[in-house]
Design a protein around this nucleic acid. Structure first.
Lengths: 108, 108
DNA sequence: CTAGGTACTTTGTAGTACCGAGTACCACTA
DNA sequence: TAGTGGTACTCGGTACTACAAAGTACCTAG
């Protein structure tokens, strides 16, 4: 598939928020999940920078837990601010994607 | 409305391609058209940088014409490479937006 | 004890939208 | 005829984001 990096800007963070909103989880697992979901070229480094940003912006609650199969995991869960941010993200996505689809329709 | 700048990255260029693909037009008019279409915060400077990039990448044919109501206009039309790029853009858009919508559905 | 999967960190880079200021053409009007 | 406002393009710099690359470290299987 083509390179989606530029198109992912601004949306990937929302996707990570959505995944965390579904269940408390950690970076490595989020990356695997994104890959399964069709975001095939997203790599760990990218997800970790997003997670650090979310933490810095106070959108998540972080809990470190031992793993049993490797080094300890940092589990992320949304707090109130995070849930609000997620709602905003979907509103923006709906707005933007509808405009873009309208643009396409109009051209045919 | 919220700030869409980050989300526009990677998609705005495609929108400009689509508009040019519809009819030969120029920067100032493209900006006004985008604003009408709901991309309310897109400003001229942004559109011009995109147009210069399209020209540099050999996706458009440029023709300068006098205006009658102001300085001369630079009209842009898609060439074969531009039409191909536009097709690729919509393929990427369809791919990405369907993944994102799937992600959202899965969470409910 | 080595290899490979798991798991996180850090530094640096490239690409994109946007800001701000500037230049310049034209019509209208006081 | 000077000034204002709409039209139209250019250019230098900034902020933000996804990604690359390299490293550290834990654990199991052979």
């Amino acid at each position: 598939m083509h390179d989606l990096t530029e198109m992912l800007k601004g949306t990937l963070e929302g996707c990570v928020l959505e995944i965390i909103g579904g269940e408390e989880t950690y970076g490595y697992a989020i990356t695997r999940r994104l890959n399964e979901l069709g975001f095939v070229d997203v790599v760990e480094g990218t997800v970790y920078t997003i997670l650090l940003r979310l933490e810095k912006n106070g959108l998540v609650q972080v809990t470190k837990r031992p793993s049993g199969v490797g080094p300890p995991r940092k589990f992320y869960a949304l707090n109130d601010a995070g849930r609000e941010e997620l709602t905003t993200f979907w509103a923006k996505w709906e707005y933007l994607s509808s405009r873009i689809n309208n643009l396409r329709e109009g051209g045919r």
